[in-house]
Simulated scan of single mutants.
Amino acid sequence: MKFTLLGTGSVKGCPVYGCDCPACINTLMDPFLTRRPASATLESEGELILIDAGLTDLEDRFPAGTLRQILLTHYHMDHIAGLFSLRWGSALNIPVYGPDCDDAPVELIKHTGILDFTQSITPFSRFLSAGIEITPLPLKHSRPTYGYQFRRNRKNVIYLTDTLGLPDDTLTYLARDSIDVMIIDCSYPPNLENYPGAHNNLTDVIHLHEAIHPTKTILTHIGHEMDHWMNTNTLPENIEPGHDGMVIMV
């Protein structure tokens, strides 16, 4: 499996519009540090699966006919904004999997265009796509949200954004398994006061890393506060930051 992180930023991205913090200034000086909406692709057997669709240039990134399907974690705008233009394509049908679309914006479901929202998935029920076993995993967020487990040839990757900790059933399910790579929300540094309560800080991630014991943990949905913290601090062993364009082969 080839896993590519298209975007690794929190809802604000980095640089944050109008912000002059050191992390945002560094990003303006070095575009490699830019963080766009958290999203990824998974490639297997010549097929391409898109995970979340917050990027608004999907038509440029993916020529017509190249996307097998789209997996959505949830319906916040930074994870679905690109669908609003993509849907007006022609002569295509792209299956979209995710939480119950009753939670989706009315405009998106009223005029779906080439997007097929009729696919039904349920928590912990595996389905097969491009030779990969995919399992939806409930997360803890401000609206219904799934993470996903991907299994192929005894390799096991989990993608967990957006979340603050994990529900007990998801944590129990993952803790008894052998995980090669955990890609997880880490929006904030440790000990940040008064941070919004729907995303992990680094302390939360460390607790989950110790509970699940993946071989490697990669951070995504990273906020500019976390980028600033990482400029002067070191992450624990086997935990590393993701970056836009990062390729993970498993």
Score class of each variant (00 low, 15 high):
Phe117Tyr: 10
His79Asp: 03
Ile132Trp: 08
Leu219Trp: 02
Leu235Met: 06
Arg143Asn: 06
Leu160Phe: 03
Pro123Tyr: 02
Pro241Leu: 01
Cys14His: 09
Asp169Thr: 09
Val96Pro: 01
Asn93Ala: 13
Ala91Leu: 15
Leu202His: 12
Ala175Asn: 09
Glu45Pro: 07
Leu164Trp: 10
Gly46His: 12
Thr170Asn: 06
Gly165Arg: 11
Gln149Pro: 02
Ile121Tyr: 01
Thr122Ala: 10
Leu139Pro: 00
Asp227Tyr: 08
Phe3His: 05
Pro136Cys: 04
Asp177Gln: 13
Val247Phe: 04
Ala53Lys: 00
Ile132Lys: 05
Arg35Gln: 08
Ala130Trp: 05
Ala38Lys: 01
Val181Gly: 04
Cys24Ile: 05
Pro37Cys: 08
Gln69Trp: 06
Val247Glu: 12
Asp57Ile: 07
Cys101Asp: 09
Asn153Asp: 15
Gln149Met: 06
Tyr173Val: 07
Met29Val: 07
Ile51Asp: 01
Asp162Leu: 03
Gln69His: 12
Phe127Thr: 03
Pro138Leu: 02
Gly223Asp: 13
Arg151Asn: 14
Ile132Arg: 07
Lys155Ile: 08
Ala211Val: 05
Phe62His: 05
Cys24Thr: 05
Thr145His: 00
Gly245Trp: 00
Thr172Val: 05
Met29His: 09
Ser10Pro: 07
Asp204Gly: 11
Leu108Asn: 08
Gly165Met: 10
Tyr75Gln: 02
Ala23Pro: 07
Ala40Gly: 10
Thr8Cys: 13
Pro196His: 12
Asp185Leu: 06
Ile218Ala: 05
Leu160Val: 03
His224Met: 10
Leu28Met: 15
Val181Ser: 04
Tyr159Ala: 01
Leu6Phe: 07
Thr145Asp: 01
Pro241Trp: 00
Ser90Leu: 14
Phe32Cys: 08
Cys19Phe: 09
Val106Asp: 12
Ile49Gln: 00
Pro15Ser: 13
Met77Trp: 09
Pro214Ile: 05
Met249Gln: 12
Asp162Thr: 13
Pro105Asn: 09
Met1His: 06
Ala40Trp: 02
Thr56Asn: 11
Glu225Thr: 12
Ala130Met: 13
Glu47Ser: 13
Tyr146Thr: 00
His221Gly: 08
Gly9Gln: 03
Arg154Phe: 12
Pro241Asp: 00
Asn93Asp: 11
Thr112Gln: 15
Ile212Pro: 03
Pro214Ser: 06
Asp227Ser: 12
Arg61Asp: 09
Ser129Thr: 12
Ser120Leu: 08
Pro190Lys: 15
Leu202Gly: 11
Ser187Leu: 06
Phe150Ser: 01
Arg68Gly: 05
Asp102Leu: 13
Gly89Trp: 04
Phe127Met: 04
His74Trp: 02
Gly223Leu: 11
Thr66Asp: 14
Asp30Val: 10
Tyr159Thr: 02
Cys24Arg: 01
Tyr188Val: 06
Pro214Ala: 08
Lys12Asn: 11
Thr145Pro: 00
Thr161Leu: 01
Asp169Gly: 04
Leu55Ile: 11
Glu193Pro: 15
Thr203Glu: 15
Thr112Tyr: 07
Ile51Trp: 00
Gly82Arg: 02
Asp100Thr: 10
Asn231Val: 09
Val157Pro: 00
Met77Thr: 10
Ser85Phe: 10
Leu208Ser: 11
Thr27Gly: 09
Leu5Cys: 10
Gly9Thr: 04
Ser90Thr: 15
Ala40Gln: 05
Leu71Lys: 00
Gly46Leu: 10
Asp20Asn: 14
Arg87His: 12
Gly9Arg: 01
Asp177Gly: 07
